[in-house]
């Protein structure tokens, strides 16, 4: 699809939980400026893939390369420093801080200014934080604590945080869950714009097929830990194995 160099390359990833093989020899490549969707029914292993990619979990086998550099054994914080931004399926923000402070913390960390004991943190990187907040459409809510935000808004904050380190790779686990349909399209539009403009590589999952088919350059389909199909929207839609998973016997999930 894209002629750019690969940003992320994963080869033969395997992850077991006890007897369950959550991720079973998954290989994938994401290029700069590309939106790659990873879809599949509940429990397919999508989030586990994300957790392997950002170092949350150690793979039992396989390797992960970011711009050709192996990520083996690195903790999430080190992988973040290499330019990987992540949003979580179940949002994780700092509940006792305002939206702006959440982004400020990410910026402080990115600029390696956390080990400061004197100057007030609220006065640091204000403009930069406000820029990111405006980008994700949270300007009006910049002073509200994350503890009281609606779920869809938390997803936006997560995106702003993920953008704070000027990432090369964005990992977004269900970025539009909890949003109204119009909002979903807006947020994905924004993401696609950023991806194109800055040459970011983006891997995302979604249960909303409109979002997936409307915004992905390429789609990977996963079921029970394995990749079962790959291609553009039309190819995936037509794929019998995919139809089987989504419409056949195991119709556990579709868009919701």
């Amino acid at each position: 699809m894209s002629s750019h160099a690969p940003i992320l390359e994963a080869r033969g990833l395997v992850k077991r939980f006890g007897g369950v093989i959550a991720v079973d020899h998954v290989s994938l490549v994401v290029h700069a400026g590309e939106m790659l969707a990873l879809i599949g029914p509940n429990g397919a292993g999508k989030s586990t893939c994300f957790n392997l990619l950002n170092g949350q979990l150690r793979p039992d086998a396989g390797e992960i390369l970011l711009e050709g550099r192996s990520l083996a054994g690195l903790p999430p914080r080190a992988i973040w420093r290499l330019g990987v931004g992540r949003t979580f399926q179940i949002t994780a923000t700092f509940a006792s801080m305002t939206v702006r402070e959440n982004v400020q913390v990410a910026l402080l960390s990115h600029h390696r200014r956390v080990w400061r004991f004197w100057r007030a943190a609220r006065e640091t990187f204000v403009a930069e934080a406000d820029g990111l907040i405006a980008q994700v459409g949270m300007r009006e809510q910049a002073d509200r604590p994350c503890g009281v935000l609606a779920y869809g808004d938390l997803k936006r904050v997560e995106l702003a945080i993920a953008l704070a380190n000027d990432p090369k790779l964005l990992l977004m686990d269900e970025p539009t869950a909890g949003m109204a349909p119009a909002e979903r399209l807006g947020l994905m539009e924004l993401t696609r714009h950023l991806v194109r403009e800055r040459g970011v590589a983006c891997l995302f999952t979604e249960h909303d097929m409109d979002v997936v088919f409307g915004h992905a350059d390429r789609i990977l389909v996963m079921n029970r830990g394995r990749l079962i199909a790959e291609g553009n929207a039309a190819a995936v839609r037509a794929n019998p194995a995919v139809r089987e998973v989504y419409l056949g016997s195991g119709a556990t999930s579709g868009g919701h």
Partner: peptide, 14 residues
């Protein structure tokens, strides 16, 4: 940040 969400804190390099 580390208290509110260790997961998020580690994911932003803390």
């Amino acid at each position: 940040a580390a208290r509110d969400s260790e997961l998020r804190a580690e994911a932003v390099g803390l």
